[in-house]
């Protein structure tokens, strides 16, 4: 019995391309990819900025109307906005808002999507098809439209924007989880676990989930970048974070009103968003390549 229960927890990873070969350590393969290392460096810098940054800069909501719309100077390295608030402080605090928003929305999409996908793959039949039909429906609307509809339904605010971005990402995780589950559910160790009377829920949680996690994590890394893009777009449209929250997208829509007088307002929050998304994209690509020696998706 014991030999049967000792399922090879990480023996193979879902898709044939995702096998880890012990001969070339993952860390070295990731480190060899220069672009991926740059991506990881950007992300580490951003996380540092989000965690420590706000303690080093001034208060991002502190208004000073006498020094409004100033260009970069010694006391305000990136200038001030229409209410005299320090842009550097706002961009730095914005990292906290955007990173949190991106991570939370991916957690929502990843958790729900994986749950639905694993069940749909494991149960198949009518239940599985119904779940996937629901998931595919979310793909039947363009992402931004789905997002603004959800945001409209839930009311304006950062929470709605995060939920919206989460739901937009959900189908990709559900599809991936379902595909991986389908490909491993007939393996001997799964059959063995069922043969010894393990409940379906336990088989899914203990044996299927750990073995399909790797491609999902790769997808989630790239997903954080996309979620941040979407949350900032919702913020830009005025449907996301509301003032005075220093959210990058919202800062850009505020900046646009002063674009002829103070064009510098529209530069730094945008650079911040772009850098963050690039960081997640190339780190995610690197993660995928490092976990997948064949170099294919």
């Amino acid at each position: 019995m014991m030999t049967l229960r000792a399922a090879p927890a990480r023996e193979t990873l879902a898709q044939p391309g995702f096998e880890i070969r012990p001969s070339t350590p993952f860390r070295r393969r990731f480190a060899r990819n220069r672009l991926a290392v740059i991506g990881a460096a950007i992300l580490i810098a951003l996380i540092l900025m989000a965690v420590v940054g706000p303690f080093l800069t001034s208060d991002p909501t502190q208004q000073d109307v006498r020094s409004r719309l100033q260009g970069p100077s010694w006391s305000h390295p990136l200038g001030t906005d229409e209410l005299g608030r320090d842009i550097l402080a706002r961009v730095v605090s914005g990292a906290r808002v955007s990173l949190t928003a991106g991570l939370v929305s991916v957690m929502i999409g990843l958790t729900l999507g994986t749950l639905l996908g694993v069940i749909a793959g494991y149960v198949e039949g009518r239940v599985g098809l119904t779940i996937m039909a629901f998931v595919d429906l979310l793909l039947a609307l363009p992402a931004i439209l789905l997002a603004i509809s959800i945001a409209a339904r839930l009311g304006l605010g950062l929470t709605s924007a995060m939920l919206a971005a989460g739901f937009v990402g959900l189908p990709s995780y559900a599809r991936l989880a379902r595909g991986s589950t389908l490909s491993i559910k007939r393996r001997d160790y799964i059959e063995a676990a069922r043969a010894i009377g393990m409940s379906d829920a336990r088989v899914m949680a203990r044996h299927i989930l750990p073995n399909i996690l790797t491609p999902l994590i790769v997808q989630a890394t790239i997903g954080v970048g996309n979620a941040i893009l979407l949350v900032s777009a919702i913020g830009y449209l005025g449907l996301g974070a509301q003032p005075p929250t220093p959210e990058w997208g919202r800062m850009l829509s505020d900046a646009q009103r002063y674009i002829t007088d103070a064009p510098h307002l529209g530069i730094f929050p945008g650079i911040a968003i772009a850098l963050t998304v690039i960081g997640f994209n190339i780190a995610g690509d690197g993660l995928r390549d490092a976990l997948d020696p064949a170099g294919r998706r």
Binding site: Y236, G266, G270, I278, N281
Partner: peptide, 12 residues
């Protein structure tokens, strides 16, 4: 990676 609205803003 660049948000559409920022690209537009930069063009403007």
């Amino acid at each position: 990676s660049i948000p559409t609205f920022w690209l537009g803003l930069i063009f403007i």
